[in-house]
Design a binder for these strands. Structure first.
Lengths: 113, 113
DNA sequence: CTGCATCCCAAAGGATACTG
DNA sequence: CAGTATCCTTTGGGATGCAG
Protein backbone atom coordinates (compact mmCIF):
# COMPACT_ATOMS: atom_id res chain seq x y z
CA UNK A 1 0.00 0.00 0.00
CA UNK A 2 1.19 3.49 -0.62
CA UNK A 3 -0.07 5.75 2.18
CA UNK A 4 2.90 6.72 4.38
CA UNK A 5 2.94 7.41 8.09
CA UNK A 6 4.65 10.73 7.76
CA UNK A 7 4.14 13.57 5.34
CA UNK A 8 5.97 16.84 5.14
CA UNK A 9 3.13 18.45 3.23
CA UNK A 10 -0.63 18.10 3.51
CA UNK A 11 -1.10 18.20 -0.23
CA UNK A 12 1.21 15.23 -0.72
CA UNK A 13 -1.14 13.22 1.45
CA UNK A 14 -4.14 14.48 -0.50
CA UNK A 15 -2.58 13.40 -3.75
CA UNK A 16 -1.75 9.97 -2.41
CA UNK A 17 -5.32 9.57 -1.23
CA UNK A 18 -7.21 11.10 -4.12
CA UNK A 19 -4.74 11.53 -6.96
CA UNK A 20 -4.67 9.63 -10.20
CA UNK A 21 -6.99 9.48 -13.11
CA UNK A 22 -10.02 7.84 -11.52
CA UNK A 23 -10.57 8.40 -7.81
CA UNK A 24 -12.34 11.74 -7.94
CA UNK A 25 -14.54 10.55 -10.77
CA UNK A 26 -15.46 7.41 -8.88
CA UNK A 27 -16.31 9.47 -5.83
CA UNK A 28 -18.51 11.73 -7.88
CA UNK A 29 -20.47 8.82 -9.26
CA UNK A 30 -20.86 7.24 -5.84
CA UNK A 31 -22.13 10.55 -4.52
CA UNK A 32 -24.62 10.60 -7.37
CA UNK A 33 -26.16 7.24 -6.75
CA UNK A 34 -23.88 4.80 -8.56
CA UNK A 35 -23.14 2.81 -5.44
CA UNK A 36 -22.62 -0.60 -7.08
CA UNK A 37 -19.77 -2.00 -9.12
CA UNK A 38 -21.97 -2.44 -12.16
CA UNK A 39 -23.52 1.00 -11.85
CA UNK A 40 -20.06 2.52 -11.69
CA UNK A 41 -19.06 0.64 -14.82
CA UNK A 42 -22.07 2.02 -16.64
CA UNK A 43 -21.50 5.52 -15.34
CA UNK A 44 -17.79 5.46 -16.23
CA UNK A 45 -17.78 3.57 -19.52
CA UNK A 46 -14.09 4.17 -20.18
CA UNK A 47 -12.83 2.39 -17.08
CA UNK A 48 -11.85 -1.27 -17.08
CA UNK A 49 -12.98 -3.60 -14.34
CA UNK A 50 -9.39 -3.94 -13.23
CA UNK A 51 -8.90 -0.22 -12.77
CA UNK A 52 -12.29 0.15 -11.12
CA UNK A 53 -11.68 -2.54 -8.52
CA UNK A 54 -8.14 -1.33 -7.92
CA UNK A 55 -9.27 2.20 -7.19
CA UNK A 56 -12.22 1.06 -5.08
CA UNK A 57 -9.92 -1.09 -2.98
CA UNK A 58 -7.47 1.74 -2.40
CA UNK A 59 -10.27 4.09 -1.41
CA UNK A 60 -11.64 1.44 0.93
CA UNK A 61 -8.26 0.70 2.47
CA UNK A 62 -7.76 4.38 3.19
CA UNK A 63 -11.17 4.49 4.93
CA UNK A 64 -12.60 6.95 2.45
CA UNK A 65 -15.12 4.46 1.10
CA UNK A 66 -17.13 1.92 3.01
CA UNK A 67 -17.81 -1.42 1.35
CA UNK A 68 -20.91 -3.25 2.49
CA UNK A 69 -21.88 -6.74 1.39
CA UNK A 70 -25.64 -6.54 0.97
CA UNK A 71 -26.16 -10.19 0.01
CA UNK A 72 -23.97 -13.19 -0.71
CA UNK A 73 -26.01 -15.07 -3.29
CA UNK A 74 -26.16 -13.36 -5.61
CA UNK A 75 -23.20 -11.24 -4.55
CA UNK A 76 -24.32 -7.71 -4.00
CA UNK A 77 -21.99 -5.02 -2.71
CA UNK A 78 -22.56 -1.40 -1.87
CA UNK A 79 -19.99 1.39 -1.81
CA UNK A 80 -20.60 4.57 0.13
CA UNK A 81 -18.55 7.56 1.19
CA UNK A 82 -17.49 7.15 4.81
CA UNK A 83 -19.41 9.44 7.13
CA UNK A 84 -16.09 10.73 8.43
CA UNK A 85 -15.21 12.26 5.09
CA UNK A 86 -18.34 13.97 3.93
CA UNK A 87 -16.07 16.97 3.71
CA UNK A 88 -14.97 15.62 0.34
CA UNK A 89 -18.33 16.39 -1.23
CA UNK A 90 -17.73 20.13 -1.69
CA UNK A 91 -14.28 19.35 -3.06
CA UNK A 92 -15.60 17.00 -5.72
CA UNK A 93 -18.27 19.48 -6.65
CA UNK A 94 -15.81 22.32 -6.55
CA UNK A 95 -13.71 20.62 -9.19
CA UNK A 96 -16.74 20.06 -11.38
CA UNK A 97 -17.70 23.69 -11.11
CA UNK A 98 -14.17 24.80 -11.83
CA UNK A 99 -14.03 22.64 -14.94
CA UNK A 100 -17.31 23.98 -16.23
CA UNK A 101 -16.17 27.55 -15.73
CA UNK A 102 -12.81 26.79 -17.29
CA UNK A 103 -14.35 25.01 -20.26
CA UNK A 104 -16.62 27.94 -20.95
CA UNK A 105 -13.83 30.47 -20.83
CA UNK A 106 -11.49 28.41 -22.97
CA UNK A 107 -13.77 27.09 -25.66
CA UNK A 108 -13.71 23.50 -24.49
CA UNK A 109 -16.68 21.23 -24.93
CA UNK A 110 -17.82 19.17 -21.96
CA UNK A 111 -20.03 16.78 -23.88
CA UNK A 112 -23.48 16.14 -22.52
CA UNK A 113 -23.51 16.04 -18.68
CA UNK B 1 0.23 19.75 -25.06
CA UNK B 2 -2.32 17.61 -23.36
CA UNK B 3 -5.52 19.62 -22.85
CA UNK B 4 -8.15 18.34 -25.31
CA UNK B 5 -10.91 20.27 -26.97
CA UNK B 6 -13.61 17.89 -25.89
CA UNK B 7 -14.25 16.17 -22.62
CA UNK B 8 -17.02 13.78 -21.72
CA UNK B 9 -16.56 14.46 -18.04
CA UNK B 10 -15.76 17.62 -16.11
CA UNK B 11 -13.47 15.79 -13.71
CA UNK B 12 -11.33 14.52 -16.54
CA UNK B 13 -10.65 18.11 -17.48
CA UNK B 14 -9.88 18.97 -13.87
CA UNK B 15 -7.38 16.17 -13.64
CA UNK B 16 -5.68 17.20 -16.87
CA UNK B 17 -5.42 20.75 -15.59
CA UNK B 18 -4.48 20.14 -11.97
CA UNK B 19 -3.57 16.48 -11.64
CA UNK B 20 -0.16 15.04 -11.02
CA UNK B 21 2.15 15.22 -8.09
CA UNK B 22 3.04 18.89 -8.12
CA UNK B 23 0.47 21.32 -9.50
CA UNK B 24 -1.70 21.74 -6.42
CA UNK B 25 1.38 22.11 -4.24
CA UNK B 26 2.83 24.73 -6.54
CA UNK B 27 -0.45 26.62 -6.50
CA UNK B 28 -0.52 26.53 -2.73
CA UNK B 29 2.95 28.02 -2.50
CA UNK B 30 2.17 30.70 -5.05
CA UNK B 31 -0.93 31.59 -3.07
CA UNK B 32 1.23 31.86 0.01
CA UNK B 33 3.76 34.28 -1.35
CA UNK B 34 6.29 32.11 -3.16
CA UNK B 35 5.80 33.85 -6.47
CA UNK B 36 9.32 33.38 -7.88
CA UNK B 37 11.07 30.38 -9.31
CA UNK B 38 13.70 30.44 -6.57
CA UNK B 39 11.15 30.90 -3.81
CA UNK B 40 9.21 27.93 -5.09
CA UNK B 41 12.36 25.84 -5.10
CA UNK B 42 12.99 26.77 -1.49
CA UNK B 43 9.39 26.16 -0.48
CA UNK B 44 9.25 22.80 -2.27
CA UNK B 45 12.71 21.39 -1.60
CA UNK B 46 11.93 17.99 -3.09
CA UNK B 47 11.16 19.28 -6.59
CA UNK B 48 13.78 19.43 -9.34
CA UNK B 49 14.13 22.49 -11.53
CA UNK B 50 12.99 20.45 -14.49
CA UNK B 51 9.75 19.39 -12.85
CA UNK B 52 9.16 22.87 -11.49
CA UNK B 53 9.55 24.59 -14.84
CA UNK B 54 7.53 21.90 -16.60
CA UNK B 55 4.60 22.27 -14.23
CA UNK B 56 4.78 26.07 -14.28
CA UNK B 57 4.70 26.04 -18.05
CA UNK B 58 1.70 23.77 -18.20
CA UNK B 59 -0.16 25.90 -15.68
CA UNK B 60 0.75 28.98 -17.66
CA UNK B 61 -0.29 27.47 -20.99
CA UNK B 62 -3.65 26.55 -19.55
CA UNK B 63 -4.12 30.14 -18.36
CA UNK B 64 -4.24 29.19 -14.71
CA UNK B 65 -1.01 30.99 -13.92
CA UNK B 66 0.18 34.33 -15.22
CA UNK B 67 3.89 34.76 -15.83
CA UNK B 68 5.23 38.28 -15.65
CA UNK B 69 8.78 39.28 -16.50
CA UNK B 70 9.66 41.86 -13.88
CA UNK B 71 13.14 42.62 -15.18
CA UNK B 72 15.38 41.27 -17.92
CA UNK B 73 18.84 41.82 -16.43
CA UNK B 74 18.98 40.14 -14.08
CA UNK B 75 16.08 37.96 -15.16
CA UNK B 76 13.27 38.23 -12.67
CA UNK B 77 9.94 36.53 -13.19
CA UNK B 78 6.76 36.54 -11.21
CA UNK B 79 4.07 33.89 -11.18
CA UNK B 80 0.56 34.65 -10.02
CA UNK B 81 -2.79 32.91 -10.10
CA UNK B 82 -4.89 34.28 -12.94
CA UNK B 83 -7.68 36.50 -11.73
CA UNK B 84 -10.11 34.33 -13.70
CA UNK B 85 -9.43 31.33 -11.52
CA UNK B 86 -9.43 32.63 -8.00
CA UNK B 87 -12.04 29.96 -7.50
CA UNK B 88 -9.19 27.52 -7.13
CA UNK B 89 -8.19 28.99 -3.78
CA UNK B 90 -10.91 27.29 -1.74
CA UNK B 91 -10.13 24.03 -3.53
CA UNK B 92 -6.45 24.13 -2.64
CA UNK B 93 -7.30 24.99 0.92
CA UNK B 94 -10.02 22.40 1.00
CA UNK B 95 -7.51 19.71 0.20
CA UNK B 96 -5.18 20.94 2.92
CA UNK B 97 -8.00 20.88 5.44
CA UNK B 98 -9.09 17.44 4.35
CA UNK B 99 -5.56 16.11 4.73
CA UNK B 100 -5.20 17.55 8.19
CA UNK B 101 -8.48 16.02 9.27
CA UNK B 102 -7.59 12.73 7.66
CA UNK B 103 -4.12 12.66 9.20
CA UNK B 104 -5.53 13.25 12.65
CA UNK B 105 -8.10 10.49 12.35
CA UNK B 106 -5.66 7.99 10.90
CA UNK B 107 -2.57 8.56 13.01
CA UNK B 108 -0.52 10.13 10.28
CA UNK B 109 2.06 12.78 10.99
CA UNK B 110 2.07 15.91 8.87
CA UNK B 111 5.50 17.16 9.88
CA UNK B 112 5.81 20.79 10.83
CA UNK B 113 3.53 23.04 8.74
C1' DC C 1 18.41 33.69 -11.27
C1' DT C 2 15.56 31.29 -14.58
C1' DG C 3 15.31 27.74 -17.45
C1' DC C 4 16.54 23.80 -21.07
C1' DA C 5 18.30 19.04 -22.80
C1' DT C 6 19.20 14.14 -22.21
C1' DC C 7 18.80 10.05 -20.58
C1' DC C 8 16.46 6.84 -17.73
C1' DC C 9 13.23 4.21 -14.85
C1' DA C 10 9.39 2.91 -11.88
C1' DA C 11 4.87 3.01 -11.68
C1' DA C 12 0.35 4.00 -13.34
C1' DG C 13 -2.72 2.51 -16.35
C1' DG C 14 -4.79 -0.43 -20.49
C1' DA C 15 -6.21 -5.07 -23.14
C1' DT C 16 -7.88 -9.30 -22.78
C1' DA C 17 -9.52 -13.28 -20.87
C1' DC C 18 -11.19 -15.75 -17.02
C1' DT C 19 -13.66 -16.99 -12.12
C1' DG C 20 -16.81 -17.70 -7.72
C1' DC D 1 -22.81 -9.40 -10.04
C1' DA D 2 -18.37 -8.60 -8.48
C1' DG D 3 -14.29 -9.43 -9.02
C1' DT D 4 -9.05 -11.79 -10.65
C1' DA D 5 -4.96 -12.80 -13.44
C1' DT D 6 -1.45 -11.74 -17.01
C1' DC D 7 0.77 -9.29 -19.93
C1' DC D 8 1.91 -5.12 -22.04
C1' DT D 9 2.31 0.07 -23.05
C1' DT D 10 2.66 4.64 -21.74
C1' DT D 11 4.07 8.46 -19.13
C1' DG D 12 5.08 10.98 -15.20
C1' DG D 13 8.73 12.06 -12.95
C1' DG D 14 13.95 11.79 -11.29
C1' DA D 15 19.28 12.60 -12.06
C1' DT D 16 22.53 15.23 -13.95
C1' DG D 17 24.61 18.69 -16.44
C1' DC D 18 24.40 22.84 -19.27
C1' DA D 19 22.74 27.74 -20.91
C1' DG D 20 21.03 32.73 -21.42
Amino acid sequence: MKIQENYTCALLLSMDLLGGKWKMRILWHILNGDNRFSLLQKGIPDITSKMLITQLKELEQSNILTRTVVSEKPLNVEYTLSTDYKGLIPLVEGFCDFSKEYAQQNGISLGDL
